[in-house]
Amino acid sequence: MINGRLPAVVVTLTCAVSGLGLVGCEESSKAGSDASAERTTAAGNKAADEDLLTGTRKITVDGRSVNVSCSGSAADGRPAVVLVAGGGDGLEKMAGIQETLSKKNRVCSYDRLGEGASDQPDGPQTLESTGKVLTAVIDRAAGDGPVVLAGHSLGGLIAARYAPDHQDKVKGLVLMDATSPTQSADLNKGIPQSATGPAVELREQTLAILHGGKPERLMVPDGKVRSAGDIPVEVIQHGQQYLAQVPDYGPGLERAWTEGQRKWLAVSGSSKLSTAKNSGHYIYVDQPDVAVRAIERVTSQAADRG
């Protein structure tokens, strides 16, 4: 666990470089745990009640309770937006951007298992199992309609891994400083076994989380980026180079992070990369206007494509 012996920059970096919440990172509050519960039946399938979810409710996926929040309404043919938070964060962290987007769009967010007001996972999770939870959320968010996924950090990785296998539903992506598709290799190369100092603890703690540590117990293997077709995709990277502050290894970590953002462009033939110049890792907090405009552009492009 991270403790007071580590420099503050290392605590920040441990959250940012992997997008995973550890002790000392901003974690979702459990305040939403008293929200009224609404139960669905089959995992990943539509609920018997065909009405789309509104407000904050609980749905059940494979016997586990998942906290979901939906607001706003979509014009005919316009995809619903599903926000996918980074590790250690949940729907409360994304409440501000959800409120802004819901003025013109139908928007939903959720707490993955192990986060916020959702249940703890009953064992190790995989991208497939966390994708099953996302499918259930999408069904309640959009019914038979399309969606745009907007993911931050680990949530961006999850969204980009999910989209190629669900091209019937996912019609656009916005990836906000998404965790690199080769994050483990990036860390092992950027902070080698011969390294000393606080960077070593950073590497070991981050790799432990990527390999099934708490809170989500999610296994996040490295892998090539698969194509989701020609859907509109915007990849937004941070502009404030805070990773460069890590002693000895910071500049290399920044270069690897930037390269990781470029790798995500392969998810679509219609991808574009931009930089939020005044933002750290939390782009939707530091420069919410940049995030909102990107999500609305992708949603409009997806709607125009039908």
Rank of each mutant, 00 (worst) to 15 (best):
A141S: 15
K272Q: 10
T41K: 06
D186M: 10
V23A: 15
D49A: 05
G90P: 03
V10R: 05
G213A: 14
L83K: 03
L52C: 12
R39M: 12
A95L: 14
D49Y: 00
A117F: 02
L218S: 06
E128C: 15
P124E: 14
A142G: 11
V225Y: 03
I236W: 00
M176P: 03
S29F: 13
I158D: 00
Y249A: 03
E128P: 10
S33V: 12
D89F: 03
T126K: 07
S71G: 14
P221R: 09
S118A: 07
R262N: 12
T182P: 07
D34K: 08
G269D: 10
V10C: 13
T258Y: 07
E259M: 12
S69A: 13
G96H: 11
H166L: 13
P192F: 06
G123D: 13
G280L: 14
R297K: 12
L175I: 02
A208H: 14
V298G: 00
V170P: 01
N67L: 09
R64T: 11
V200L: 09
S36M: 09
R5L: 09
T299C: 00
R297A: 02
E128K: 14
D248F: 07
K272I: 09
G197S: 10
V267P: 01
G252V: 13
A141K: 07
E201C: 12
A208L: 14
V292Y: 02
L20I: 14
L113K: 05
H152E: 02
R297L: 01
Q205N: 15
V285M: 09
L127R: 09
V137K: 03
I231F: 05
T258M: 13
G87F: 00
T40M: 02
G32Y: 07
L53W: 06
Y282K: 09
A95W: 13
V61F: 04
L243S: 06
P215I: 10
R203H: 14
P79R: 02
G190E: 01
T299Q: 03
T196N: 12
V61K: 00
A185G: 13
K263H: 09
Q120T: 12
V290Y: 00
T126W: 07
N105K: 03
A95E: 15
R293Q: 02
P288H: 05
D248R: 04
S118G: 08
V17Y: 08
C70Q: 07
A43V: 09
V17S: 08
